[in-house]
Design a protein around this nucleic acid. Structure first.
Length: 422
DNA sequence: TCTGGGGTCCTAGGACCC
DNA sequence: TCTGGGGTCCTAGGACCC
């Protein structure tokens, strides 16, 4: 048996832990640059605020209905996520962290326990120790545990007293669950496939479970589609991934907080993203062989501008200075005057373990892992950005907006609220 | 004025090899 | 006129996830 546990409206719940005044209020969290809605409290959902809508389109509606609006605070959510996963990992030896707010726990060998009770205990513990409400779905396959979780969530939204736990341990139970699940809510069925399925009158997960494997193979992306059908029928074919696989690519990209036209400002951004990408490599103890850069104007214009270049490094590296150097060299090649740039990004590929790093005998720009280690240490001890490349710039006026961000309570001493205990 | 960011997997098709 | 068969590798594109 598999269980899937995820935080309800995770980002909003994290904010509520540190600001209880948000409890019971409609709350939303915006994406980077305060662009669009990426998390909503139940109250905000009830008001009809949709996921992904641009903020500017609904700003006045939000004010009118007194919706508390927050910029995203990834430092906080990431830290809360770690805490949640730590708690959850005490409930099973086999945990797969699937995303910032959800994980699978294998319940293999737990079959003789009362799994419904166990689910409730998991939920209660996270709520009590961390303050984050969750839902727990349990089923014989990962896909069915997702279905269970989805229904548990739906039920607890409708009925505040619902347990937030759903166990699908018999065929009758999961068939009933599939009848109540829309096809687009099945794990692995996105917009395109849902549209196609609807055109074949396949509207619910129950119908989907009954299509032939060959049909699924033809219409739902080959083997991926076949697996979905198998899993909906109770045959597990997606295993737990207990050890996170090393990343095959690392991407750092951001929209700017204002229009950028000058090469100088663009260079600061590209240099900053390159150092950030290098930091990510170093935390995974990997190096990258290939670096790509892209720059874009707003994509919502009639003639959006896109340019990019891919560079193979002389030898794989995770040295911020080297990545920034080649990134800037690439940038100068693709930069065009007279464009209103809105976004830039760095993508790293050809990632291998730093242990197997090949070096050139006569390297023009040798990596300096020891130096990088010291920099990382300083930044960890004294806070991000204590030491940085000069080419990142000091003013960074292009930085994204996040004017409504809460404090980084759990990761910055300086941002801990001061309580006056008179 | 203002529309996120960071990933994954799979397939098809072309180039190339013997 | 006939014009194999099987393999690998790479890339682009399309779908998906949260």
């Amino acid at each position: 048996m598999f269980s899937l546990i995820d935080g309800n409206n995770f980002y909003v719940s994290c904010e509520r832990v540190f600001n209880p005044l948000l409890e019971g209020q409609p709350v939303i969290v915006l994406s980077n640059n305060d662009s669009s809605v990426i998390a909503r409290s139940n109250e905000a959902k009830d008001l009809g605020v949709q996921m992904g809508v641009p903020y500017f389109q609904i700003k006045s509606f939000l004010e009118e209905h007194n919706v508390k609006t927050l910029s995203s605070n990834y430092a906080l959510y990431g830290d809360m996520s770690q805490r949640m996963m730590n708690i959850l990992s005490t409930f099973s030896d086999e945990i797969e962290i699937y995303s910032i707010d959800e994980c699978f726990l294998s319940l293999n060998g737990f079959e003789r326990w009362d799994l419904l009770e166990y689910g409730k205990e998991i939920r209660q513990t996270v709520l009590q120790d961390l303050g984050i409400p969750t839902c727990v779905g349990i089923g014989p396959t990962k896909t069915l545990s997702k279905v269970a979780n989805h229904l548990a969530k739906k039920m607890s939204r409708k009925d505040k007293t619902a347990s937030g736990v759903l166990l699908l341990d018999t065929e009758e139970k999961w068939k009933e669950a599939l009848k109540q699940t829309k096809v687009e809510d099945v794990w692995g069925i996105g917009r395109q496939y849902a549209k196609k399925l609807h055109s074949y009158q396949i509207t619910h997960a129950f119908d989907l479970a009954r299509v032939r494997r060959a049909w699924a193979k033809k219409h739902l992306g080959g083997i991926v589609g076949e697996r979905i059908i198998e899993e909906l029928n109770g045959t597990s074919c997606i295993e737990m991934e207990l050890v996170p696989r090393p990343k095959q690519s690392i991407c750092v990209s951001r929209s700017f907080g204002k229009i950028v036209t000058e090469l100088g400002e663009l260079s600061e951004a590209v240099s900053t993203y390159a150092s950030k990408a290098a930091e990510k490599l170093r935390t995974e103890e990997t190096v990258a062989a290939v670096l790509s850069i892209f720059i874009q104007s707003s994509q919502h214009k009639t003639n959006p501008f896109n340019a990019g270049i891919t560079i193979t490094l002389p030898s794989p590296s995770s040295d911020s200075r080297i990545l920034a150097h080649y990134a800037l060299e690439g940038l100068r090649k693709i930069f065009k005057e007279g464009i209103e740039y809105k976004k830039a990004g760095i993508v790293l590929n050809g990632i291998v373990s730093a242990k197997y790093q090949q070096t050139q005998l006569f390297e023009e720009r040798p990596s300096n892992p020891a130096l990088m280690k010291v920099i990382d240490k300083i930044n960890k001890r004294w806070g991000q950005g204590s030491v940085f490349l000069a080419s990142n710039g000091t003013t960074q006026e292009w930085q994204m907006l996040s004017t409504m961000r809460s404090k980084r309570f759990t990761t910055r001493w300086k941002e801990l609220p001061v309580v006056n205990c008179k």
